[in-house]
Nucleic acid binder design. Structure first.
Length: 733
DNA sequence: AGCACGCCGACT
DNA sequence: GTCGGCGTGCTC
């Protein structure tokens, strides 16, 4: 009997051996889902290996309960991708595999697709390997059908009917054995391929250059950095390369950040390629839709796969190109479970498949930038805006030490808003703080309202008369007097979106003002409605947080102003500057996208700070160079490789004790630095206390080797009430 | 992760 | 004398 080595969703880094019925299971079944008895229950897993021998004592071995023949087996290349992730992120293989499957295929029930008329049957690998002598000699129809399939590879339902009246039934039977797969479309339907509908714009010289650079080596692995200022037309470069892929009948995987931006890009793609099967995999889909799209990708029917980080694990038999848009975006990194970076996994996948990967960004992460200037990645630049007459906005700082603010607004900003209003142009006020005020303060004893479960201040939401924790969602009533000293002189301190909205409505009573943050867009479709209002010119002043920074075109927007961004200049997080710059570049990029010249005003007490200076000059490179020098001196990434060991426990002492223990048992090899355990930046979160231990090395391979050994030791450590996890290439501390 | 096994404190 | 606490170890 064959031994099946099965990946299961359990936190132990091992496969589990089962007995497989030899008549049904072959080498071809690697990648097939199975139902197996595990402890008390049945679980769904994936066959990773078929072997003849098991090191497990035979009385322990159980037979599998069921083999799923509802979808094709996962291709070996995808299993290799899972193996890589498990090894690189030091995460159990079974969890990696099951995390990569759509939920619908993880469940106990077989996947039943919505009705699609079956037009064609195609022979599978299992079918090709099937021995015709197992068919009884008198079953002529079966024999003929199998012979025919082995000859031509596929058969349409019409052709089959001509062979025999009973052929469709026999094909169904073949399908249940996984000898053939059912297809709803006939192969040739892909021919409609690259006939485009929406007008194809003329490329700018820079865009043309980028395309011309990539095309000659489009069939080999390279990591390209497409470095283009906002509005420089990176999307058009993607579209040209995708067109090429469509002509070559190859699939393109497009990864986008985790924001409601997917529909927008989807619309652009659909307009350009109306006849092409595009699937988009994002959080808004129900499980069946997701599994359906995933399956279309696996069959090679979907030619463009657009999705968030999870989509990097989609099986793609004809993959020809990977695009990672806004590669610096933090949402490509998963922060729990398997802590993978979809951008980095995409690069591995491109190398594995031998296809190019394009990282697009206006403000690349320093890791990517460093790789581009040292030649590991190939850099292409789009230095100016693509729309005719659209230029980069004029960026200026307002020194609030001189121009004193009132209600958070300085006189020059007020007059700029007035001018915009008079010209009937839109303005955007960017402030990265939701709520009315970030702190509730007692003037008499300096008490501030804090969250009981998190180490954070409660944010004042005045309209709802509530105090809210933005980390865990906890809410409480607004107190009437100070719980410490009883004084009634408690007041909101600082400014959030709601307070700025209030101040602006007082200042500009006739202006149409709209606040856009997580609170105002919570309701379903609210954001879509608001976008329509903005695009229909029914709004004068927009006030909002980061959701306004990304991706949307506001053609009539001429003024962008930034409030209260100074805090990030002096953060203890060494990546804070990089992120602030990227965010401000993005929000500044909203101004002047149409024909109107744009203006950006930044209220700051540090107008001479190099970050703002670089921003005023639109000079990413000089800031990046400055930051790289700092990083090199401080021995931070990208000059060093980091790993965190996270621990979470009911008390910080337990977490720290576990980490000290972990540090103690480590082999402490040369070239590996292990730092002492420290509490996390947000030491208490949702009632749990968190700490971490930093491990770093200038050698990635030495670090990997160390982690492999350390992990085994950590597994053996008593983890009393402590949950722990390794975070390779961490972004947050 | 679940779940069983197992060894020490307050209960009908 | 038992019910149940959660510490430890296993699941093919």
């Amino acid at each position: 009997m064959p031994i099946l080595r099965v990946a299961l969703d359990v936190p132990v880094n091992t496969l589990f051996d089962y007995l497989g019925p030899d008549t049904v299971v072959t080498e071809q079944d690697v990648g097939t889902r199975v139902r197996v008895p595990f402890g008390k229950h049945l679980m769904t897993g994936v066959i990773m290996e078929v072997a003849t021998y098991s090191s497990i004592a035979s009385p322990k071995l159980k037979p599998i309960a069921h083999i799923f023949r509802d979808v094709p087996p996962l291709p070996e290349t995808l299993l290799d991708l899972f193996r890589f992730c498990s090894a690189y992120y030091h995460h159990p293989l079974g969890e990696v595999v099951m995390n990569g499957l759509p939920g619908r295929l993880r469940s106990s029930k077989p996947f039943v697709q919505q009705y699609r008329p079956i037009l064609e049957y195609r022979l599978t690998g299992t079918g090709r390997a099937a021995d015709p002598s197992v068919i009884p000699p008198r079953n002529i129809v079966k024999r003929r059908l199998l012979a025919r399939l082995k000859e031509t590879g596929s058969i349409t339902i019409e052709e089959a009917k001509q062979l025999s009246q009973r052929a469709p039934g026999v094909l169904k039977e073949f399908a249940s054995l996984w000898w053939v797969e059912e297809r709803a479309e006939i192969e040739s339907s892909a021919i409609a391929a690259a006939n485009t509908s929406s007008p194809v714009p003329v490329l700018t010289p820079a865009q043309k250059n980028a395309v011309d650079e990539i095309v000659p080596t489009i069939k080999q692995f390279n990591t390209w950095l497409l470095h283009g200022v906002t509005g420089s037309g990176k999307t058009e470069v993607y579209l040209r390369l995708i067109t090429l892929m469509l002509h070559q009948r190859r699939q393109t995987l497009v990864l986008v950040p985790e924001i409601n931006l997917t529909p927008q890009l989807e619309a652009v793609f659909r307009a350009r390629f109306p006849a092409i099967r595009l699937i988009s995999l994002h959080s808004g889909l129900n499980p069946s839709e997701r599994a359906g799209g995933w399956l279309q990708a696996q069959r090679g029917d979907a030619q463009i796969i657009l999705g968030t980080r999870l989509a990097v694990f989609t099986p793609l038999p004809d993959l020809g190109l990977i695009i990672v848009d806004e590669e610096q975006d933090m949402s490509f990194k998963q922060q729990d479970g398997l802590r993978y970076s979809a951008r980095d996994v995409a690069i591995f996948r491109a190398r594995q498949t031998g296809v190019p990967v394009i990282l697009g960004s206006a403000t690349p992460s320093l890791e990517t930038y460093y790789n581009a200037i040292n030649g590991r990645y190939l850099r292409l630049q789009l230095p100016s805006r693509a729309v005719r007459n659209a230029t980069l906005p004029l960026v200026r700082c307002i020194d609030t030490r001189i121009a004193k603010t009132e209600e958070g607004l300085s006189p020059p900003l007020i007059s700029a808003l007035e001018t915009s209003l008079a010209l009937n142009q839109q303005s955007l006020v960017f402030i990265n703080r939701r709520g009315y005020a970030p702190v509730l303060l007692c003037r008499s004893c300096a008490w501030t309202a804090a969250c009981q479960r998190c180490a954070s201040r409660l944010v004042v939401h005045l309209r709802e008369k509530k105090l809210r924790c933005h980390h865990c969602g906890h809410q409480e009533r607004f107190p009437t007097n100070c719980p410490e000293c009883g004084d009634q002189d408690i007041a909101p301190f600082g400014h959030g979106t709601q307070r700025v909205e209030e101040a602006l409505s007082r200042r500009f009573p006739h202006a149409r003002i709209m606040r856009i943050d997580r609170d105002s867009t919570r309701r379903k479709d609210a954001w879509q409605k608001m976008l329509e209002e903005i695009q229909g010119q029914r709004v004068d002043i927009l006030i909002g947080t980061q959701i306004l920074a990304k991706g949307h075109d506001f053609p009539n927007l001429s003024l962008v102003s930034v409030l209260n961004s100074d805090a990030s200049l002096f953060s203890s997080d060494f990546r804070a500057s990089e992120r602030l710059f990227a965010q401000l570049m993005q929000v500044a990029g909203r101004a002047g996208r149409g024909g109107i010249p744009g203006q950006v005003l930044i209220q700051t007490e540090f107008p001479n700070h190099p970050l703002y200076q670089a921003l005023c000059r639109h000079d990413y490179d000089s800031l990046a160079q400055t930051l790289l020098v700092e990083r090199k001196l401080a021995r931070f990434p990208p000059f060093i490789y980091q790993v965190l060991l996270w621990a979470e426990a009911p008390s910080i002492d337990l977490a720290l004790a576990f980490l000290a223990n972990a540090e103690g048992i480590s082999a402490k090899p040369k070239h590996i630095e292990i730092f002492d355990p420290v509490p996390a930046q947000m030491p208490r979160l949702k009632g749990m206390e968190r700490a971490y231990l930093l491990v770093q090395s200038s050698s990635r391979s030495k670090l990997q080797k160390f982690l492999g050994e350390w992990r085994t030791q950590l597994d053996a450590l008593p983890d009393r009430k402590v949950r722990w996890a390794l975070d390779v290439d961490p972004l947050e501390f």
